[in-house]
């Protein structure tokens, strides 16, 4: 394929739709990471929880034939893993990062172990007949040229992912519990003195992050593909953590950061057809992560400087005003 064709395809509705689709399994763990980070318990186990969610969804759908029950089971599994992390950290006081590492290793080893027991295969679940979630065609919108291709026809998970951004925003900034959650993250001592139970709040925050991460995992195994693969999350959980920081801990920012990574991923898919070493192309999403985080850090520093200057100016002005009042 020539470079012109690649460029042309990037500006097509199908490409934009693919960005949205590819962003979905990043938005979920990123939103989960955001909620946990806001509560002061950055969830390092998102990657592992995605794998567990992906695995559980596939297995339950294969054995029960009920896709909704499978999703429910996947979410419960996600909660269990997140709570395990919570118990390690909050009850047994282990370091959050080490505990997160442990949960990740446990998840990747555990899913492969169970996969082998249940299917006799250590690589994937292709010999099981697992189900996938339906795609949704939005009436009216689907008939709009261009826009219809972009917005309609995605799997349920994709819509859920974008809905989760809105819900997380409402939750964190408009509900009482969400506000308490942020207070716990920022000043747990203050929250305690006001009767907010810090441990419980953090456990719930982790559980929420578990639900969201598991949905991201199931998006991979029940929509993107229709089977479970070893290490299926393939770094999306980690990129989700990067998105939390890059998005400045704000729901919409985190969503946009996730989509930036989705965009980089989609580009690398397109470039795969060019005569460029594939290893180089596959690096794009990860290189983007590093570059984006570096740019973000520099820009943060700059804005801190600007704020400082502004603050100083206001301060000098107010002091001058005070001094003239005194006179």
């Amino acid at each position: 394929m020539s470079i012109e064709l690649v460029i042309k395809s990037i500006f097509s509705s199908l490409f934009i739709a693919s960005v949205i689709r590819i962003s979905t399994p990043i938005i979920f763990p990123a939103m989960g990471g955001l909620v946990a980070t806001a509560a002061g318990v950055p969830n390092m186990a998102l990657e592992g929880i995605m794998n567990v969610g992906a695995f559980t969804g596939v297995m339950v759908s294969a054995y029960t034939g009920n896709v909704w029950l499978a999703i429910l089971a996947g979410m419960v599994a996600g909660i269990m893993m997140a709570l395990l992390l919570g118990v390690f950290h909050l009850h047994f006081k282990s370091d959050l990062f080490i505990a997160g590492l442990a949960v990740n290793l446990m998840s990747s080893g555990g899913t492969v172990f169970l996969l082998y027991i249940l299917t006799g295969d250590k690589g994937n679940s292709s010999n099981l007949r697992s189900l996938s979630v339906p795609n949704i065609d939005i009436p009216l919108i689907k008939d709009i040229p261009f826009l219809g291709d972009i917005l309609s026809g995605h799997p349920v998970f994709t819509y859920l992912a974008f809905l989760s951004v809105f819900l997380v925003y409402i939750f964190l900034y408009r509900t009482r519990f969400g506000t308490h959650l942020r207070a716990v993250g920022e000043n747990p001592e203050a929250a305690t003195t006001l009767g907010i139970n810090v441990t419980r709040t953090r456990l719930i925050a982790l559980a929420i992050s578990g639900v969201l991460a598991s949905l991201g995992g199931m998006n991979l195994s029940m929509a993107y593909l229709q089977l479970f693969q070893k290490e299926m999350a393939a770094g999306r959980g980690w990129i989700g953590i990067a998105a939390v920081h890059l998005g400045a801990y704000k729901p919409v920012g985190v969503m946009l950061a996730s989509m930036l990574f989705g965009f980089a991923d989609a580009i690398s898919n397109q470039l795969g057809s060019l005569n460029i070493p594939s290893q180089l192309v596959q690096m794009i999403p990860y290189a983007t992560t590093v570059v984006a985080l570096a740019v973000y850090a520099i820009q943060q520093r700059q804005s801190a400087l600007d704020r400082m200057k502004k603050y100083q100016k206001e301060h000098t002005d107010s002091l001058a005003a005070e001094a003239s009042n005194v006179e």
Binding site: I170, R176, T179, A183, E186, A191
Partner: peptide, 24 residues
């Protein structure tokens, strides 16, 4: 015992915020 990123008012009511239709 204040939450630095919250407003003065949010800090004052923190823990027993007035609600309207379930939201703050």
């Amino acid at each position: 015992m204040l939450v630095p990123s919250f407003t003065v008012a949010s800090n004052v009511v923190l823990g027993s915020e007035p609600l309207k239709k379930g939201l703050i």
